[in-house]
Write a protein that binds this DNA or RNA. Structure first.
Ligand SMILES: [Mn+2]
Ligand SMILES: [Mn+2]
Ligand SMILES: [Mn+2]
Ligand SMILES: [Mn+2]
Lengths: 218, 218
DNA sequence: AAATATTTTTAGATTAACCTAAAAATATCG
DNA sequence: CGATATTTTTAGGTTAATCTAAAAATATTT
């Protein structure tokens, strides 16, 4: 039975492994978990003993297949709970992450799988992130940053890169919601801000925002 | 923010306080939490510092009003989650306790209250125990043990005293479910076993079983 | 009320999960 | 490539939550 801390380290290593060939660095993990490097080193030794990661001193951490499956199960739970909170309990997408961070550690296979069934086997969480299935299979969608589109190109808003509460609330205020259709109308030379068509309206957003919005080209 | 262990101690003290005038004993708490007395003594000091209980050496523990409210909130969450698991996720009443022991520690007022709303503000959990409302008010029903009824008396099954998985499964097997109407037909002199009318059928149960079944007289 | 039994607390140890400071290894740069 | 900077590990310490063994307080029994 893994502790919350062990589970959080695994999850962190998983997320930091995306587009990372070599091992995940101690410092990166420490930063993502808001702890210090020596704490991470201790934990890496423990996870290595438990065969959840491979780890050699100074070489960073890599998930084993068993570790990967374990991490995916935690992420599966996190995202299923986020769906539950939004779909059934009237939470806003900006409020769910904190609670899901707690719920993801509940240990009950039956709970996870019945929740999945109850929700109708959702494939995406409220932020557009894919939900691993019971076997740990994850279906990735091809997506690009809004800032990668050129003038005249159109995309559908399918996810956020920064899923901080602040950014999500900002999107709510601008009525930019998952599923919105976005067209690049103009890019300002001066500050790289984008003038976009959003469904039936037009508005301007900063390059920083555009760097955190994922779209599929249409 | 209370730790899981602090919350479990509070809950234990609450349950052991029912029909108990003087303080709850160290040993009773230790037994209920499957820890040892010295661990409990340590925790009582801490809970006393936090003003959740009053505690004087050798005199046992008593909840303060603040401690009582806190305990009731944990019990409220436990029982709401049990309802959720049975009503929405196809759990049997014999499977929910263990998972609810985990879920009761999730910290989110909004989650608890939205869950309550989602479930239609239930007043009883799957074992017939009352669910405290948001204000910590608990509505007790007058109930007696089945073994307290005399021959010819009738009662409605409204709760279990022993809510162990084993006993609940035993009741399932006998088709004794909450809401069943029970009449005492005969009491065996030899071993005190009870011959009962259960809805449309008859069967025999041991005195031990009858000592763990709560009914309201009808 | 004294002797005995039981309960509770204290003393001191252990483990997990963190930390800071310093040493060691690796990476970068002139 | 050697000097310097950065990263990572080691060493050693802290806190929370547990434990065992022993001492102290309370309760029960003769
Ligand atoms: Mn999240
Ligand atoms: Mn999410
Ligand atoms: Mn329960
Ligand atoms: Mn219950």
């Amino acid at each position: 039975m893994l502790s919350f801390s062990e589970e959080n380290h695994l999850k962190s290593i998983f997320h930091l492994s995306i587009d990372q060939k070599n091992g995940v660095s101690t410092n990166a993990i420490a930063e993502s978990l808001k702890t210090k490097a020596p704490s991470v080193t201790d934990m890496l030794k423990k996870l290595c003993d438990k065969e959840l990661i491979t780890y050699k001193k100074y070489q960073g951490a890599l998930l084993t297949e068993y570790g990967r499956k374990t991490a995916l199960n935690i992420i599966r739970k996190h995202r299923l709970w986020e769906v539950f909170l939004v779909e059934k309990l009237n939470f806003n997408w900006s409020e769910v992450h904190e609670v899901a961070e707690q719920l993801e550690h509940i240990k009950s296979q039956k709970l996870t799988n019945e929740l999945d069934k109850f929700l109708g086997y959702p494939t995406k969480d409220p932020h557009g992130d894919p939900i691993p299935n019971i076997a740990g299979f994850i279906k990735y969608t091809t997506k690009v940053l809004l800032s990668d589109l050129s003038i005249g190109e159109k995309g559908k808003f399918v996810g956020v890169k920064d899923s901080s509460s602040a950014f999500l609330k900002f999107l709510d205020k601008r009525k930019i919601a998952l599923g919105s259709n976005i067209e690049i109308l103009h890019i300002e030379d001066f500050d790289d801000s984008l003038h976009i068509g959003l469904d039936e309206t037009n508005l301007s957003i900063s390059i920083k925002s555009a760097n955190n919005i994922y779209v599929t080209k249409i």
